[in-house]
Design a protein around this nucleic acid. Structure first.
Lengths: 267, 267
DNA sequence: CTGAAAATCACCCGTTTAATCACAACCGAT
DNA sequence: ATCGGTTGTGATTAAACGGGTGATTTTCAG
């Protein structure tokens, strides 16, 4: 059980979860001390002693620490399991409230009929994953999917793919042989193939070239292409829908030329 | 489908979930427009037009909106289901990271043997609920619970109570007859009773008196008493453990005098 | 080519948050 | 009772951040 790294990470995550720096430091400090006074806490956490009290009060109000009103006061963190459970509940509740509120809103629209040349950009691993799932789920005839990085083959995706009706042709490509095998094993119903998309990788395989993430074509009328930013490893994607859509047209062309994977699957 | 209230609430919740005001307004605005330009968005959301762009960029990076890079740019929100799913995932992931990081930390301690007169204070409905569950779960012989407000009889609590081994005597009290019936129905194995605790309510039943929340006594060695703040309806509790604990001693005295509910249950 | 709208930039200002200081209440030990 | 150090609170300063506005460049339609 070391500490150096993990303490930092815990503090960071707690801040992402909405705590201030001092609050985060104090909470982590308390999980290391099991119980402690303001003085000791201040020593361990580098939080000015006089500020420990404020931080603790906030934490207490959030149900993350307990206070013993003695002199000197003693503080202790709620057991880890309880704390995470509390946080989880808190967020579940918020997301629910959001969902309800937004459900009862919508429709001001007043939309002018938009053209059909729409290509949308989106970012964020999770969001792209969700969109991929959605698209695959509503496939009626054919799904062509190329995966460029094994980290993208998540459990959820595999599940979604396996739940596809048997009427839907499922073709999945991979950039490497090993990834192909992995896919074939996880999704037995799929026709898999390797590569055919070398042209998508950067000139060289250097890391600082933006790498292909996924390429998804559903019923030849919706397409999603994603790439992975070299530095941050963040995923970004473009996404087009509609048979007449420019992107989709290009994709169909590529398929016609056998560059993506045709209706008559290889192997 | 009205709007006025819900828009406000949605914006608020989104901010609690970590978005800035402009970002929240823009997202809600987009769920009302299905699709829109910076100009229209600015009109609907009251966000300065020149700032819409920043906000949208952040939202895009979080996977909550899509951008069409045309001129003028078009924005649209990810479908509600996808958005909430994305947020949920994001938080699950953070809580997990936190759990892991903190798991790998602990133990600096250096603790001096603490006395046994510990009485801890905690706050927050969720946190107190969790603690209540924990305590009930580890009961070995006897659980005495008094509930002062029907909003405290949550599904989780009912479940926990019903999962208690048959070797544990379960006595549950309520401040009103109707609440008692409710409890008896939800937890058939329990011996229920009414009141016996009038002295816990304020002099008068006025709302501005802090009301009793719950009172829990487990195996006569751990006790938790909570009250509900008049203004905010927030719950706060004190909690003591150990047979020799002062609070616990008091509680035992009260029981011995029949003030809480004795080993030989009423009705 | 020209004017208006679109998009990006740069700056201001009030609030929040981190950090320090001054002080009164308190405690333990002589 | 007294004294030195600790403990808790409040006030204060400085830096960071978020909201708000105007100037500047780019883009597009006429």
């Amino acid at each position: 059980m070391d500490t150096p790294e993990h303490v930092e990470e815990a503090i960071e995550v707690l801040q992402q979860l909405g705590l201030k720096e001092y609050e985060a430091r104090c909470f982590v400090g308390l999980t290391r001390l099991t119980t402690g006074t303001a003085k000791r806490l201040s020593e361990v956490t580098e939080v000015p002693r006089t500020r420990v009290y404020d931080a603790i009060r906030v934490l207490e109000a959030q149900g993350l620490v307990e206070i013993q009103h003695s002199s000197p006061q003693q503080f202790r963190a709620v057991p880890l399991a309880e704390a995470t459970e509390t946080l989880r509940d808190q967020y579940e509740e918020r997301v629910d409230r959001l969902h309800n509120a937004l459900d009862r809103v919508d429709v001001v629209d007043d939309d002018d009929g938009s053209p059909v040349q729409q290509v949308w950009a989106m970012a964020g691993r999770g969001a792209i994953e969700n969109r991929t799932d959605q698209l695959v789920q509503k496939a009626a005839e054919e799904v062509v999917l190329v995966i460029g990085d094994d980290s993208l083959l998540t459990e959820d995706l595999v599940e979604t793919l396996n739940e596809l009706g048997s009427g839907v042709e499922l073709v999945i490509g991979a950039l490497t042989k090993s990834l192909q095998k992995q896919i074939q094993a996880a999704v037995p119903d799929a026709t898999t193939f390797v590569s055919g998309l070398e042209w998508l990788r950067g000139e060289n395989t250097t890391d600082d070239e933006t790498a292909i993430g996924r390429l998804l074509l559903v019923d030849r009328s919706a397409i999603l292409v994603s790439s992975i930013i070299p530095g941050t490893r963040e995923e970004q994607a473009i996404f087009g829908e509609g048979f007449g859509n420019g992107l989709v047209v290009i994709a169909r062309r590529l398929m016609a030329q056998g560059l993506i994977a045709a209706r008559d699957p290889h192997q």
